[in-house]
């Protein structure tokens, strides 16, 4: 940080190097945590509460979005004391539908924006899209960074773009998608995390879900370390959203272990951690019921929306 306390890009341009093998070893070690009994049940419920229930397909319809919102509001009504998911995440044209369905609830509406998933359009178009979804009632905006600019080394461009989008968001929360599957190295993930955090991201997010690999635990761990370093330096908490490919309860719990042992219990909240997922909710529900009544479950008993 510069002396006058304002944030400059240069503060984030020389992050510590990341050792891939070390990161993978750390993840492997944390994956060995054995989460049983009560701790498993509370983890499952916590994970459920952190889900951004997502549908991001070209064939999405209002009907599909309404179904999804219904699912968000009625996860499995026959089982008491289940938390809500955190948000429903949709394409911009679907924002009004989602806002309408969820207006009586505390489930947030998140919208992807900035020419998701590629980000291949002008800044002006991106900003007007962001302003539009916010105006339509989106609580949260999931933007993508310009990977092309990043990989060309034009970090200032990436930084400025995020800062502009943040400004355009107004009160809405900004999640910045790094699309780590296109960044190629953990060093780049670390650098991009710093740039996004520096430019004002409320959350940093791994992936659009449209590119493989989507979220991986090593990538998430590196992003957590970037968040932690920022916290150590400034006291400010930035959230994390791994998205794409997290479809079972076991993996979700592994992410929560990574989170708890890297950023601590203050991050164990939907305010600072989200899963971008669609099928994860049902697997969590099946596991919760298994924990409660001791019987392995079948997918046929859980609504697929």
């Amino acid at each position: 940080m510069s002396n006058n306390g304002s944030i400059n890009l240069s503060d984030f341009l020389n992050p510590p190097p990341v050792d891939q093998i070390g990161i993978e070893e750390r993840v492997a070690r944390l994956n060995k945590r054995s989460i049983k009994k009560n701790s498993k049940l509370s983890a499952l419920k916590l994970a459920l509460s952190m889900i951004d229930l997502t549908t991001l397909e070209g064939k999405d319809s209002k009907g599909k979005v309404r179904q999804l919102c219904n699912k968000a509001l009625h996860l499995h009504d026959s089982f008491p004391d289940l938390p809500n998911v955190a948000a429903v995440c949709v394409y911009p044209p679907m924002v009004p539908t989602a806002v309408e369905c969820l207006k009586e609830s505390n489930v947030k509406v998140a919208s992807v924006a900035t020419a998701f998933p590629s980000g291949m359009t002008t800044l002006q178009t991106k900003l007007s899209e962001v302003r539009r979804v916010v105006r339509m009632g989106a609580d949260e905006v999931d933007m993508v960074i310009s990977r092309g600019a990043f990989l060309r080394g034009e970090y200032h461009l990436v930084f400025d773009e995020i800062a502009s989008v943040k400004e355009a968001c107004g009160e809405a929360h900004l999640k910045v998608i790094l699309e780590t599957g296109e960044l190629y190295s953990l060093d780049n993930v670390r650098l991009a995390s710093g740039i996004a955090i520096g430019a004002g991201a409320d959350f940093i997010k791994t992936s659009t879900g449209k590119i493989q690999p989507a979220a991986t635990q090593p990538v998430a761990l590196v992003m957590m370390q970037a968040i932690r370093d920022h916290y150590f330096k400034t006291g400010k908490k930035v959230g994390l959203k791994p998205a794409g490919g997290i479809s079972d309860a076991k993996t979700a719990i592994q992410y929560l272990v990574l989170l708890k042992e890297t950023l601590g219990v203050e991050w164990l909240t939907p305010d600072l951690f989200r899963f971008g997922a669609s099928s994860l909710a049902n697997d969590l529900l099946m596991q919760i019921l298994k924990q409660a009544n001791g019987v392995y479950q079948s997918a046929n008993y859980f609504s697929k929306d």
Binding site: K36, K37, S39, L46, R228, Y231, G235, K260, V265, E266
Partner: peptide, 20 residues
């Protein structure tokens, strides 16, 4: 940059149940 010592709370919530 000088880092001030800052201890994160890792344990007050979601303690792992025994897994013997």
């Amino acid at each position: 940059m000088v880092t001030k010592e800052k201890l994160i709370d890792f344990n007050s919530v979601w303690e792992y149940s025994p897994a013997p």
